[in-house]
């Protein structure tokens, strides 16, 4: 872009044009670097602030279950576990539902008008503030899930995932609320990538004697796969970082409990709960936990790129 070959210019450009051109180039370049700089600055700041905790606890921080401000002993295992498990529940529920809705909305099962309204409603889900999700979770979702939880515990209590008496707030309601919150991301992006596929692909498949479902599953979804993976990864990032709604529903218990019916905690929710009153080493420990969340999200994104690269072969 920056190389300008004088011989290819048919008309001499005025000085103003040149200067505008140059300054626009520099402006966009500056903005692009600024994003990277902001990211690095945040990462650096978090790293510096967490240094005392890193020096004190080292890698053991990741494997320790202690979170005791009185004894100044900190470990983030329950929150790391809670972050991953709640996000995993959300993905397991939201990916099939979201991709299903996306397929449904990109096909002509319904008249266009109805589909347009549905697409709009799904996207509206993304506009609801997370504290509203939290409130709705407390007053609507938890009462609904409590009955279901009791039933799970009574019938499948032998299974570790359902081995505790449901307590109201817990991993399950947090996972379900996250499902609802990431659904619009998965649906909207997957639908866009399905809808942007060339119609020739569908015609080719139908013309070879494939049914509509075979076409969707064998051709359309694979062709839109990188878009769908992108959607899922964006959603996963959102689920791991979501704070308010999760804090309100997860129970904020800093212990690892395999049962989904028991309360737990996530890194984001821990930070939100403790930052206000924290001081000294506790701040460093919270920063350290934040750094771990940062790295987790980073790993997820790299993983997503790898998956897309692997599939992009075709």
């Amino acid at each position: 872009m920056t190389v300008r070959n004088p011989s290819s210019v048919t008309r001499p450009r005025s000085d103003t044009e040149r200067i505008l051109d140059q300054s626009f180039l520099w402006l966009t370049r500056l903005l692009a670097y600024a994003i990277a700089a902001v990211l690095l600055a945040i990462a650096f700041q978090v790293l510096v602030q967490s240094l005392p905790a890193i020096q004190r606890f080292g890698v053991g921080f990741i494997f320790s279950q202690d979170w005791d401000p009185v004894k100044e002993s900190y470990g983030a295992l329950p929150m790391i576990y809670g972050t991953l498990v709640s996000a995993l529940i959300a993905l397991l529920l939201a990916v099939p539902i979201g991709v299903g809705i996306a397929v449904f909305l990109s096909e002509n099962f319904l008249p266009l008008q109805v589909r347009t309204v549905l697409v709009f409603l799904v996207e509206l889900l993304a506009a609801i503030p997370s504290v509203v999700y939290g409130l709705w979770g407390i007053f609507v979702l938890i009462p609904i899930l409590r009955g279901f939880g009791v039933w799970l515990f009574e019938n499948f209590g032998w299974f570790p995932l359902f081995s505790t008496q449901p307590s109201g707030p817990g991993m399950l309601p947090a996972g379900v609320i996250l499902t609802i919150m990431i659904l619009p991301i998965i649906t909207a992006i997957s639908r866009d990538s399905l809808a942007s596929l060339p119609p020739e692909l569908r015609q080719a498949s139908i013309g070879l004697g494939a049914t509509r479902w075979e076409t969707i599953i064998r051709v359309l979804i694979p062709a839109a796969f990188s878009g769908i993976v992108g959607a899922v990864m964006l959603a996963l990032g959102r689920a791991m970082g979501e704070t308010m709604a999760v804090t309100m529903l997860i129970g904020n218990a800093n212990t690892v409990n395999v049962s989904l019916l028991a309360p737990g905690n996530t890194i984001a929710s821990l930070l939100a709960n403790q930052f206000a009153e924290a001081s000294g080493l506790q701040v460093a420990a919270l920063m350290y936990a934040g750094l771990i969340l940062f790295v987790l999200t980073f790993i997820v994104n790299i993983f997503a790129e790898l998956v897309i690269l692997k599939v992009k072969k075709f």
Binding site: L201, G207, L208, G209, A210, A223, F314
Partner: peptide
């Protein structure tokens, strides 16, 4: 069933974003 007996080639080449092999066997697979 009709489309399995009466095939179609389009104006614009439209291979699937799959390997050459998978393109050819697609109809057979379905």
């Amino acid at each position: 069933d009709v489309r399995r007996r009466i095939g179609m080639v389009f104006q614009k080449p439209n291979p699937f974003p799959k390997s050459i092999y998978e393109n050819v066997v697609y109809g057979a697979r379905v």
